[in-house]
Amino acid sequence: MLTIYHNPRCRKSRETLGIIESSGAMMEVVEYLKTPPTKGELKQIIEKLGIKPEGLIRKGEAIYKEKYKGKSLTDDEWIEAMEGNPILIERPIVVKGDKAVIGRPPENVKELL
Results as ranks from 00 to 15, higher is better:
L2D: 10
T3Q: 13
I4K: 03
Y5T: 08
N7V: 01
N7Q: 00
P8C: 01
R9I: 02
C10R: 07
R11M: 06
K12I: 09
S13P: 09
R14F: 01
L17G: 06
G18R: 05
G18N: 05
G18I: 06
G18Y: 12
I19K: 01
I19V: 10
I20P: 08
I20T: 10
E21N: 03
E21C: 02
E21D: 07
E21I: 01
E21H: 04
S22Y: 01
S23F: 04
G24S: 10
G24L: 08
G24V: 13
A25D: 15
M26W: 03
M27H: 12
E28K: 09
E28A: 10
V29S: 11
V29E: 08
V29W: 07
V30T: 04
Y32D: 08
Y32L: 13
L33V: 13
K34C: 10
P36M: 13
P36E: 14
P36A: 14
T38F: 01
K39W: 02
K39D: 05
G40N: 08
G40Y: 00
K43H: 08
K43A: 06
K43M: 09
Q44L: 04
I45C: 13
I45Q: 12
I45A: 12
I46T: 03
I46P: 02
I46A: 00
E47H: 12
E47I: 03
E47D: 11
E47M: 10
K48I: 11
L49A: 03
G50E: 10
G50V: 13
E54I: 15
L56Q: 12
L56D: 11
I57L: 14
R58M: 12
K59M: 12
K59S: 12
G60I: 09
G60F: 08
A62W: 12
A62E: 14
I63L: 06
K65N: 11
K65E: 08
K65V: 08
K67C: 06
Y68W: 15
Y68A: 12
K69R: 15
G70T: 12
G70R: 07
K71N: 15
S72I: 12
L73I: 05
L73G: 05
T74E: 08
T74L: 13
D76K: 10
E77A: 13
W78T: 00
W78S: 05
W78E: 02
A81G: 06
A81H: 09
A81T: 08
A81M: 10
M82F: 15
M82H: 14
M82W: 14
E83I: 02
E83A: 08
E83G: 05
E83Q: 09
G84F: 15
G84P: 13
G84I: 14
L88Q: 06
L88P: 01
P92R: 07
P92C: 06
I93C: 04
I93H: 00
V94T: 02
V94F: 00
K96W: 02
G97L: 02
K99E: 15
K99H: 13
I102P: 01
G103N: 03
G103C: 00
P105T: 03
P105E: 01
P105V: 01
P106D: 06
P106L: 05
E107Q: 05
V109L: 03
E111V: 08
E111R: 14
L112M: 04
